[in-house]
Measured scan of single mutants.
Amino acid sequence: TTYKLILNGKTLKGETTTEAVDAETAERVFKEYAKKNGVDGEWTYDDATKTFTVTE
């Protein structure tokens, strides 16, 4: 399944996708990605669109 991440950081904005077996796995991948890019904020997930959003 393809999951999407929307980054709404103070200095970094953008989108990325990952293939994962479930939302929990995708969330771990995306949180590591955000951490590596210095983005830390509020996380939300929309199951209907398989989209995570992190907003600083």
Score class of each variant (00 low, 15 high):
W43F: 07
A26L: 01
Y45L: 02
K13M: 15
E32S: 15
K10I: 15
T2A: 07
E15D: 08
E27H: 09
T18H: 12
N37R: 09
K36T: 15
T1V: 05
G41H: 02
E15V: 06
T49H: 10
I6D: 03
K50S: 12
T51S: 12
E24T: 10
T51G: 02
I6C: 05
T11V: 13
K50R: 11
K13I: 12
A23W: 10
F52S: 00
F30L: 06
A34E: 02
I6S: 07
E42G: 06
T16Y: 13
A26K: 00
V29N: 06
D46S: 12
L5V: 05
A48E: 10
F30S: 01
Y45Q: 01
R28P: 03
V39D: 01
T49Q: 07
D47R: 11
L12F: 13
L7Y: 13
E24D: 06
I6M: 06
V54A: 05
V54T: 03
V21W: 09
I6F: 10
V29K: 08
A23P: 09
A23Y: 08
V29E: 08
T49K: 11
A20C: 04
Y3M: 01
N8D: 10
T53E: 07
D47E: 08
K4R: 13
K36I: 14
D22A: 07
K50E: 05
Y33Q: 03
T44F: 13
E42F: 12
G38Y: 05
K10W: 14
K36P: 01
T11M: 13
K35R: 07
T16E: 10
L7M: 07
T17C: 04
T1Y: 10
T53L: 08
T55S: 11
T49W: 06
N37G: 05
V29M: 13
D40P: 05
K35C: 04
F52L: 01
K4W: 09
T55C: 04
T25A: 15
N37H: 15
A26C: 02
Y3C: 01
T11I: 06
A23H: 15
I6Y: 14
A20W: 02
D22K: 05
R28Q: 15
T51A: 13
Y33T: 04
G14E: 15
N37M: 06
K36V: 12
T18Y: 11
G14N: 13
L7F: 08
L5D: 00
E32I: 06
D46W: 04
D47K: 15
D47V: 12
K10Y: 06
A34P: 00
K31W: 11
G41N: 01
T55F: 11
D40K: 09
F52M: 03
T17L: 13
A20M: 03
E19S: 13
G14K: 12
K13G: 08
E32Q: 08
I6E: 05
E24K: 07
V54C: 05
A48D: 10
E15Y: 06
N8V: 12
A48H: 10
D46N: 14
F52Q: 00
T16W: 14
T55V: 08
E27V: 07
T25V: 15
W43A: 01
T49C: 04
L7W: 14
D40W: 06
F30Y: 02
T51C: 03
T11A: 13
K4N: 08
T55W: 13
E56H: 06
T53P: 00
D22Y: 05
T16P: 03
D47G: 09
D46E: 14
K13C: 04
